[in-house]
Structure formats: C-alpha cells, structure tokens
Design a protein around this nucleic acid. Structure first.
Length: 586
RNA sequence: CGGGGAGUAGCGCAGUUCGGUAGCGCGCUUGGUUUGGGUCCAAGAGGUCGUCGGUUCGAAUCCGGCCUCCCCGACCA
C-alpha cells in the first residue's frame, strides 16, 4: 500500500476528548474515527489489524473443532421473550420495531439465535458435540461508554457456542476454550490472566474472565501471589478472621451525636471499626413468577468491611439492585446513618447478614434514632436475618481463601470471557436432542466471547512508546514500512515491488512533500514493526537501513539482500511470539 | 440516572467577564525554498461560532429551552 493513497491521515495532536493512550494513538495514527458516543469507524489500517486478530481467532477456534457461520444482527423479539431476557434486560438492549410494528432486538449476544438453530438442526446425540462461532457486530447500549475502544456500544465480537450431550462434554469444551483463549491473546502478544467471575446476565454455572492487567482497567481483580488464586472482585472470597469469643453483654443504648459514618463512630467510642456493624440499604428488583417486585434489602456487614453488591444481588437473586432512597429507608423504620435491623418493620424487607457478623459478639450498631447507637449487639439475641451469606468485598491484605496469604487487588480490562451456560437456554427454548437411551434432553451449552476492538486497543495500551504504536508482528497492519527519502525513490519503488512479489505486506511511504522528519514520525506513530529507510545517504554507503520499531539499532542491508533479510526478521519476530504461545501451552 | 466539564475552520485553542459583525498555531491549496527526526518564505481556500427561541439598533458574547461529546460515580458478558 502506498501511504500517499492510504485512506486516513495522521494527526499531530490528539482530539481533546481522547484520554486513554490507546484512544489517542489510534486516532492520531489514522486507525479509527469516532461517530458518536461509543460508536466508531475503523479505517483501513485498523481493518487490517482486526483482520489479523480475527484470523488468529479463526485458527484457534478451528483447532478446537469450531465451525464458522454468521448469525443475524437483528432478531425478532420472540426468541428473547422465550428466554425471558426481553424482560430481564433493561435499557442496555437495543429495541426497535419493524415496518409492521413487530418488536425487534439488536444483537447484544447470540445465545437465543444459536439455541433456535440448535432446536432446528440438532436432533440426535450423534450430532454432538459441536462448536459453532461467528465474528460479528454487537450492540450494547451501555449507560456510559468511555476510553475510546476500551468500552464501546457497537463492537465486533468473536462469540462461540459449545453444544454437548452431557456435562463432561461441556467441561471438555470449556477447558479447550480456556487454552485456546490464552493462545489467542499470546499470539497478539497481550499478557492476560484468567480469573473466576460472576455469571451475571448470562446465567449458568461457571465462568472465567480473561483480564489484561492495567491501571486503566474497569474491573478490580483479587490475586494471591502465594498460591495463584485469582478472581474478579465481584465474586472473590477470602478467609474471614475468627472474632475473639466474648460473653454476650447486655444491650445498651448510648448517645453518639454526629457519628453518621463508621469512622466517626469508632473514633467517638474509641473502639476498632471491626467492633461495629454497618447497615447498607438497597432496593432489589426480584422476579417472582411472571412479575417483577421491588423489595427492600437490609444488608448488614461489619464496619471495617465493604459490601459487595454482586454477592448481595446473588444472595437475594436480584435482577437489579440500587441504593435505597432516604424516604424508603425511613419508611421501614430505619434511620440513615444510625441504621440497624433492630426494631425495623420486616414486611417486604429482606435482611441479609454477612456470615462474619453472626459470629462477632458485642458489636455496636445503630439504634434507628438520630444520634444513638446500641452497644453489645449480638446476632440471634438482638436481631435475626432472612439470609446469612458472604456479602463482603475482598480487599487488599485480606486472607486468601485458598492459602491464607495476603491478597492483592489490581485493575484489569476484560478482553474475553467463557461461560458454562448449561441448559438455561436450551431448556427455555426447547432445544432437545434424543440421547442414546431414547430420552429427550436439553442440549448442554457454553458460550465464549472476545471483543476484537477492545483486544486491539489493549494491545496498543501494552505496546507503545512516546512516539506511537509498536505492533506485534502477528497483528501489525503491515509487516514492513518503507520510508523513501531523496535519492532513494527509484530503489524504494523496486524494493516495494520485490517485497510485495515475495508476499511481504508492505506500506510504502512514497510521498515526496513531507520532510524526512515528518515521514519518520509518521512511521513511528503508525507502528509497523519493521522500517526500511531508502535514501541517497545510505545507498552511498552500500545499502538501505533496516530498523525494528521497538529497537534503536539500525542495520545497513545491501539492496539485493533486503527481501531475504526482511523475511528473516519477520520470521524471527513471529517465532519469538509463538515461543511464548507454546511456553504457556505446556 | 446523579455530579462536573466542553461545543468557535479538518485538529488544538483564543475571543464570552465588559454585546459592535471572528482570530491564532498546525493541517489543506498554489508558488518558491529546504531535504536523514514534524524546514523556511509568500499568497490563498475554509467557519449559519452545536441548535431553537428571546432580549437588543446590533449577540460567539446576555437570558431560556433543547441536542451532542468528554470525565467521575451509579450501571455493565
């Protein structure tokens, strides 16, 4: 490709609204343009990177038995009503009507379509297992997109779906994906870790997220350096400290003016925060039968710990969970800032108590009266719970659930995820097969996704310097970038031709107007892994200059050896990445 | 949805306080110059100042509504 003809241009300055490095560089280097919030065009350079990424995905999916197909972006709402997600999912789902007034859905994922295909096509256990996938557009109307390509509303995803007759089969395909995903990320030279995760709106049994660790990440992960335990903070557990046993003391109401926070309270009474109980008021939307009902959720955790809303939502099987308004809190007889489950109204209220609170004696808790707390509150004697569960968020320094060593929290970007769905969709939609014994059973499913654009942006976050992007050879839009300078244009033309004939993907900066400095800067910005500088100066010295984008060294290569030398460099760089892939695969 | 910020030429910005009919740098076009890390000179093109309405002799500027984008939070395969 001749740079003079390339559709797209480099910018000296990044748009003011680009905050993340990947966003700035991808815009400045001419890869992407924004159309609206979370909606982007992908220019020819980005298209080529995405093609490379998608082909890596295809190879890894095909290697574990995947078959590629294409499913539609627009779905009749009926199938989403069949699984209930039409009702469960809120504004994140794109809905519209066709010209006859029928409800339609913009694809946010494809379980429903897959399941519809399965009930159409799969009849017998002989057709299982199977694995199908496609790479296609998704629309998720995120309340807030951000960070360039890190979180968008319209995006391309590789999503695959495993179909099995039994749970062993699902397990096998699940772990095959687990390894295939590491292969994909490693081939893109993106370091990732897998963490246990919440099943969220997908439902199902088990899930992992693949995380690229970076401070700009939106997810908080909990890691144990000692034993390797990893989990998304949403589901991370930890070993709770065993409270000192004490004889229960009599309940006592004391004035505690201006102690609306746990910190104030602990300071006022001169006790550690671990000797207090904290009330958190939420309102949950819970599906009961066909309808959604709102329930007040009264959560109690120890004062020194934070509520984990995902755990709480799972404990009460909530579809939605939001903080309660002050009027709602007062309506049940509680007082914000001085709340406790003692003496509140219990109808339509779910009291959820963290399991550690039930074992902690003589806590200080609110008296549901402005300016007063109770001393020596004990679970069982003074209050009870509808649900006792672990509802506390893991934090830095807490004990690892596996080995007890201190946990560490880090931020990460979720670049992929895998889910054991089980029969949630097949049962709901009647996707049954006849097993060997003649019985009809729902197909056991898994679903697996990787966002292409987010992966591309993550690679830029990981591989760049002050001057621009540094693409890994495996997904670079071109393999070599020829910079032609004065006195070298004819030779550059010949090399461009020769490299293309040899099958080397070449970007040729044939522009005559820009100064050498501009051309070098553009080359650095665009980030092609190899650069060939062809100019009168080096030709006089006997060749052209070959430089890796990632390194400073420049090699002088005789013109007639350039093609072979470039091919060799590509091979070496590719091999370096593939060695990592194989290393992680063992 | 709550909080904050911003919409002026392709990009980055000034001008708004105190109303007088729009400017700078980069980019773009043309000519010259220069040619190994964003040369220099000159001449140009390009903007209904997000939008609708109001106040006024006169609005980028004051007032009101709306739209859009960004950041933080809520939310989130």
């Amino acid at each position: 490709m001749r740079l003079s003809r390339l559709f797209g241009e480099t910018l000296r300055e990044a748009p003011a609204d680009a905050e993340f490095i990947s966003h700035q560089l991808l815009v400045r280097a001419g890869y992407i343009r924004q159309l609206g919030a979370g909606i982007f065009s992908y220019l020819p350079l980005a298209r080529r990177v995405m093609d490379k990424i998608e082909n890596i995905m295809r190879e890894e999916m095909n290697a574990i038995g995947g078959q590629e197909l294409t499913m539609p972006v627009v779905h009749p709402a009926e199938i989403w009503k069949e699984t209930g997600r039409w009702y469960q999912i809120g504004s994140e789902m794109g809905r519209m009507k066709d010209s006859t007034g029928r409800d339609m859905v913009l694809a946010m994922t494809h379980e429903e379509v897959v399941t519809d295909l399965v009930r159409d096509i799969i009849h017998s256990y002989r057709q299982l297992p199977a694995l199908i996938y496609h790479i296609q557009t998704k629309w998720r109307d995120e309340p807030r997109s951000r960070g360039g390509l890190i979180r968008v509303r319209e995006f391309t995803m590789k999503d695959s779906y495993s179909l099995d007759r039994d749970w062993e089969g699902l397990d096998k395909q699940y772990w095959a994906h687990y390894q295939a995903y590491f292969n994909i990320f490693n081939r893109c030279d993106l370091p990732t870790i897998a963490v246990e995760s919440d099943v969220g709106m997908m439902g199902g049994k088990q899930a992992h997220e693949f995380m690229y660790l970076t401070p700009i990440g939106e997810d908080t992960l909990v890691l144990c350096d000692a034993c390797g335990y990893t989990a998304n903070r949403q589901v991370a557990t930890f070993r709770k400290p065993e409270p000192e046993p004490e004889e229960p003391k009599p309940l006592e109401k004391v004035p505690t003016p201006d102690t609306k926070t746990i910190e104030d309270l602990a300071n006022f009474l001169g006790i550690p925060q671990s000797k207090t109980a904290k009330a958190v008021f939420m309102v949950a939307t819970i599906t009961e039968g066909q309808e959604d009902v709102q329930k007040f959720v009264f959560a109690v955790v120890r004062g020194d710990m934070d509520l984990n809303e995902t755990k709480l939502a799972n404990a009460v099987k909530a579809k939605e969970l939001r903080p309660a308004h002050e009027e709602e809190i007062k309506a049940i007889g509680a007082e914000p800032g001085y709340g406790s489950p003692i003496g509140i109204k219990r109808e339509n209220v779910i009291v959820v108590v963290d399991d550690l609170v039930t074992k902690s004696p003589n806590l200080v808790a609110g008296a549901n009266e402005e300016g007063y707390h109770y001393l020596n509150v004990n679970y069982g004697r003074d209050f009870t719970a509808d649900i006792v569960a672990d509802i506390v968020a893991a934090a830095d320094g807490y004990a690892c659930p596996e080995c007890g060593a201190p946990l560490r929290t880090v931020r990460g970007v979720e670049v992929g995820n895998i889910f054991k769905l089980g029969t949630r969709y097949s049962a709901a939609m009647g996707a049954l097969f006849q097993d060997k014994d003649g019985t009809r059973k729902p197909v056991i499913m898994g679903s697996y996704g990787i966002g292409v654009g987010r992966l591309m942006a993550s690679v830029v976050e990981e591989h760049h310097d002050d001057y621009g992007i540094i693409w890994p050879i495996t997904i670079a839009p071109y393999q070599v970038h020829i910079v032609a300078l004065k006195g070298g244009y004819d030779v550059a033309e010949q090399l461009y031709q020769a490299l293309q004939d040899a099958g080397v993907e070449t970007l040729f900066d044939d522009r005559t107007e820009p100064s050498p400095g501009e051309k070098f800067n553009d080359a650095d910005l665009i980030g092609i892994p190899l650069r060939l500088t062809v100019g009168g100066r080096s030709l006089k010295k006997g060749g052209v200059e070959l430089k890796r984008r990632a390194e400073k060294d420049i090699a002088l290569v005789p013109v007639d050896e350039v093609v072979a030398r470039v091919q060799q460099e590509i091979e070496v760089m590719t091999e370096a990445i593939m060695a990592k892939v194989r290393g992680d695969a063992t």
